[in-house]
């Protein structure tokens, strides 16, 4: 597969999909978008979801298994990150009254910080299916 657009189109083919994007969580940049944004602006959604993803990626609580590394006394967890420095968190799910949001981290073998964001309609979306497919898409995006 697939480049970014094909990947987002596949995500949009899931039942109940309303919007999808590939976002850089350090900068908040949307590298690609498809469908709608809940606030009518993909760039705003990207900046906001990036903050959420960054918190999850960097909080120790969601890091490795409690080991901490010293750097001037800095506590920290995830020292056995992948080659791309990817977070230990796999995905985030936010449930709202009207929808679901699934954020899936993409692991690359060069330094990057990107995730896929899929917005689903609460009534027609299938969260379990979406989560599995998004994991699959995130892998194929970089592994072919």
């Amino acid at each position: 597969m697939p480049g970014i657009d094909e990947c987002l189109l596949e995500a949009m083919a899931l039942p109940g999909a309303r919007g999808a994007s590939l976002v850089d969580w350090t900068s908040g940049l949307a590298l690609g978008t498809a469908g709608d944004s809940p606030v009518g602006c993909h760039e705003t959604t990207a900046a906001e979801t990036a903050e959420l993803a960054r918190s999850a990626a960097e909080f120790d609580t969601f890091g490795a298994r409690g080991e901490s590394a010293g750097n001037d006394g800095l506590a920290g967890a995830a020292d056995d990150d992948g080659p791309g420095g990817g977070p230990h968190v796999e995905d985030l799910i936010v449930t709202t009254r009207a929808g679901y949001h699934v954020l899936r981290f993409v692991e690359t073998s060069f330094d990057s910080s990107v995730f896929l964001h899929l917005w689903l309609d609460r009534d027609t979306g299938n969260l379990a299916l979406a989560r599995i497919r998004l994991r699959d898409l995130a892998e194929r995006l970089v592994l072919g």
Partner: peptide, 10 residues
């Protein structure tokens, strides 16, 4: 004391 920082910034 107790201040933490994420892996990338570490």
């Amino acid at each position: 004391p107790g201040q933490t920082v994420g892996a990338r910034r570490r």
